Amino acid sequence: KELVSALYDYQEKSPREVTMKKGDILTLLNSTNKDWWKVEVNGRQGFVPAAYVKKL
């Protein structure tokens, strides 16, 4: 599985998104959309802005 690192804090703005803190390591589930990537963090799945994470 592919991992990404959070470059910035992000506070979810809808139920489809997830909150992350800078430095968090997230499991990348889907990166086909260039703007929003689906990740899993702390057992929750949702979307984060692609520009806020980088692949490890």
Rank of each mutant, 00 (worst) to 15 (best):
A51M: 11
A6M: 02
S14P: 05
E17F: 06
R16P: 05
E2C: 15
V48F: 00
N33Y: 09
V18K: 01
V39M: 01
V41C: 10
V41I: 15
R16C: 15
Q45D: 07
N30T: 07
T19Q: 04
K21S: 09
A50Y: 02
L28I: 08
N42K: 09
L26M: 14
W36H: 03
R44G: 03
T27R: 12
V41K: 13
P49H: 02
E12G: 15
A51V: 10
P15D: 13
K13T: 13
V48H: 00
N30K: 07
I25S: 04
E17T: 09
D24L: 04
N33S: 10
K54L: 11
V53R: 00
I25V: 12
R16T: 12
L26I: 08
L26A: 10
Y8M: 12
D35E: 12
R44H: 08
V48M: 01
D35T: 13
P15Q: 10
V39P: 00
L28R: 00
K38M: 15
Y8V: 12
K54E: 15
D9Q: 03
K13E: 08
S5K: 15
T19D: 04
V53I: 11
I25K: 06
K55Q: 11
K21N: 09
E40S: 09
K13M: 12
V48N: 00
T19L: 03
K13Q: 14
D24W: 09
P49E: 02
K38Y: 15
S31F: 07
V48A: 03
D24T: 06
V4Q: 02
G23E: 03
S31E: 14
T19E: 04
G23D: 07
M20P: 01
D24A: 07
E2L: 13
E40W: 06
K21Y: 10
F47K: 03
Q45E: 13
T19M: 04
S14A: 08
L7T: 07
A50T: 05
A51D: 14
Y52G: 10
V41F: 14
V53H: 00
G43Y: 04
R16Q: 13
K1G: 12
K54D: 11
K13P: 05
W36E: 04
F47P: 00
Y8I: 10
V4S: 05
D24H: 04
T32L: 10
M20I: 15
E12K: 14
D35A: 10
N33K: 07
A51H: 13
V48I: 09
V4A: 14
E40A: 08
Y8H: 12
L56Y: 10
K13H: 09
Y52S: 15
Y10H: 04
Y52Q: 06
G46A: 04
